[in-house]
């Protein structure tokens, strides 16, 4: 297996720390994480509650910045980027799927999926076409005009996945995407992730269910803010 370097990885984290300041108290959510992800890898991040998984994902997704350490995205050090450049990476390079779906409640499925393209500055016509295609890909083209509260949990998560993929990002990040779904619906979502991976997508998934994690090809285990084990599973 080729070694991970900033140059050959989509994502390369180098000795990352993330400290939260709670008044006088310092909470170390991450304490020296070094991990790389190659293009078209399918990685599961596992670990007990509070071990720092979400913190790590937020850093990878450029929603948060590390207290120390370096983060290279597609070879470029994220620390040197300004707010607009980070917004652009979030928009174009990263698709984020959340445990709680995080759809805009007042907007219908199509508009939710279209929104990243709005921020990408794409024209209305193309936006609608691409949003519609993305909905079709997750099998929800017939629910385009439904609001989130008119959709089942699984359907909502598929809308969220369509939204994450509509800008054709380099990487798909999913923080416990099946956490709020029943087992069967969760399995549907996982099958879909596998298809995406087969089509060449890079996926990082946080879960604490072994069954779910074993869909991935590599499992990174975290404990107390550190990488405990990093193994290729298939």
């Amino acid at each position: 297996m080729e070694q991970y370097t900033p140059a050959n990885s989509v994502i390369y984290l180098e000795d990352i720390f993330r400290v939260y300041h709670m008044g006088a108290e310092e909470v170390y959510a991450l304490r020296g994480v070094t991990v790389g992800v190659h293009r078209n890898e399918y990685v599961a991040i596992m670990g007990p509650s509070g071990s720092g998984k979400s913190t790590l994902m937020n850093l990878i997704g450029c929603l948060d910045t590390p207290s120390s350490g370096n983060y290279f995205f597609n070879g470029a050090n994220v620390a040197g980027l300004d707010d607009n450049e980070l917004a652009e990476i979030r928009n174009k390079e990263i698709g984020f799927v959340f445990q709680t779906f995080n759809l805009l409640p007042r907007s219908d499925a199509l508009h939710n999926v279209e929104l990243p393209l709005v921020y990408a500055g794409i024209k209305k016509e193309e936006r609608l076409e691409r949003a519609y295609q993305a909905l079709e890909m997750v099998g929800l083209s017939d629910r385009a005009t439904h609001k989130p509260n008119e959709l089942s949990g699984g359907q909502r998560q598929r809308v969220a996945i369509a939204r994450a993929l509509v800008t054709r990002p380099s990487i798909l990040l999913a923080d416990e995407p099946t956490g709020n779904l029943d087992t069967k619906t969760g399995e549907d979502i996982m099958r879909f992730f596998e298809e995406l991976h087969a089509k060449g997508n890079t996926i990082i998934l946080v879960t604490h269910e072994e069954d779910i994690a074993h869909h991935a090809h590599r499992i990174v285990r975290i404990r107390d803010g550190k990488v405990e084990r990093d193994e290729v599973t298939r």
Binding site: N84, K92, N102, L115, P116, Y119
Partner: peptide, 14 residues
Amino acid sequence: REIGIRKAIGATRR
């Protein structure tokens, strides 16, 4: 929360 969502999918400050 909506603002957070919008930021997560690429909304700039502006």
